Simulated assay, not measured.
Amino acid sequence: MSNDAEFTEPARVSFRGHGGITIAGDSWGPQDGPLVVFLHGGGQTRGSWKDSGLALAKAGMHAVLLDARGHGDSDWDPDGNYTREAMVEDLIAVLRELDQPAFVVGASMGGLTGLMATTHPERERITGLVLVDVVPRPERKGVERVINFLSSNPEGFASLEEAADAVAAYLPHRRRPRNPEGLQRNLRQRADGRWYWHWDPAMMGGPRDGRGEEIDVHTEQLEHAARQLTIPVLLVRGALSDVVSEEGVAAFRALVPHADYTEIGTAAHTAASDANDEFTDAVVDFVRAQVGGEGR
């Protein structure tokens, strides 16, 4: 077990992703600990996993938190290539550089990337998979609500308070913070003085994974990937989620009968940040169960 005083700050790292895109990340914990790579959801950053990174470091694990292409400190693709295929190639490129079998933890968009990466020719680089509030058969209305939020306010916000109002409307189950300064992690102030989300608007410019009729097409691909899973799998659902229903969970568990499952009663689609301690405990227990013992 690591000393709790160790690894209290991450090391900044970067990787060369698909097409030369720079993928930014944070590295927490001992380099020789079990490797756990975190992939955030659409419109988020690696900062969403900060508390998890620290907790895994204290448990003797090596957590690598990544910004997806077009998000946070990672490069925006000059050609606007934000397909799932490109994100899978980014993940595999990172795992090549790390050169160690990894557990992959993915929320929403990141979970879909992780699931599809298990069909890649180099899938042996993934030793376990944690899917955070994402399944092959999501609820259409919930998916559309997420996409509508990501597509909204292309003209930016006049103030952080205005951005906080937008977030509060999107996440009504959370208490609106009194001080919106924390939103600066997810916003960029441009020369015009307005605040804009950190992600590349080109992500929402064309046909998107999971939108409209494409939901059914991608469901078939994702269910095919799920059927092939032989590695350890943990599905985490927020009980308040409007994206993953109990029916969606049942359909997934029928495809992957060996999967572990946990539900977080106080969480919605943003399960990891809604109830971080409970979520992180589930991930630590899952990894420990696979590697055997108590970490370091």
Rank of each mutant, 00 (worst) to 15 (best):
G210W: 03
N179W: 02
P207T: 04
R208P: 00
G193P: 08
W199F: 15
D200G: 01
R190Q: 14
P201M: 12
G193K: 13
R190P: 01
D200N: 06
R190A: 13
G206H: 14
E181P: 01
L187D: 08
H198Q: 11
N179Y: 05
N186D: 14
R211D: 15
W199P: 02
M203Y: 08
A202D: 12
P180M: 09
D192A: 11
R190V: 06
Q184P: 04
D209N: 06
R190F: 06
D192W: 03
L187W: 03
G193W: 08
D209P: 01
R190H: 13
R194F: 05
R194M: 05
W199Q: 07
Y196R: 02
W199R: 11
G182Y: 07
M204C: 05
P201Q: 13
L187K: 00
D200P: 09
D200H: 04
R211K: 07
D200V: 08
N186Y: 15
R188A: 11
E181V: 10
R208F: 06
N179E: 09
E181W: 07
Q189S: 05
R208T: 09
W197P: 00
N186M: 15
W199V: 01
M203C: 06
H198N: 09
N179A: 10
G182S: 15
G205S: 15
N186Q: 08
G182L: 14
G182I: 10
G182C: 11
R208Q: 06
G210C: 04
R178Q: 09
M204Q: 10
R185Q: 13
D209S: 02
H198S: 11
M203P: 00
R208C: 00
W195F: 12
N179H: 07
G182D: 09
R178Y: 03
Y196L: 03
D192G: 07
M203L: 15
G182T: 12
H198L: 11
G205D: 15
G205H: 12
L183D: 12
D209R: 05
N186R: 00
Q184R: 14
R178N: 13
R194I: 05
Q184W: 12
P207C: 00
Q189A: 01
G193V: 12
Q189C: 00
P201R: 15
P180R: 00
W195C: 03
D192K: 06
Q189W: 04
W197R: 08
R211Y: 12
G206T: 08
N179V: 11
W199D: 10
P201C: 11
D192E: 04
R178M: 08
Q184D: 10
Q189L: 00
L187Q: 03
R194V: 05
R188Y: 10
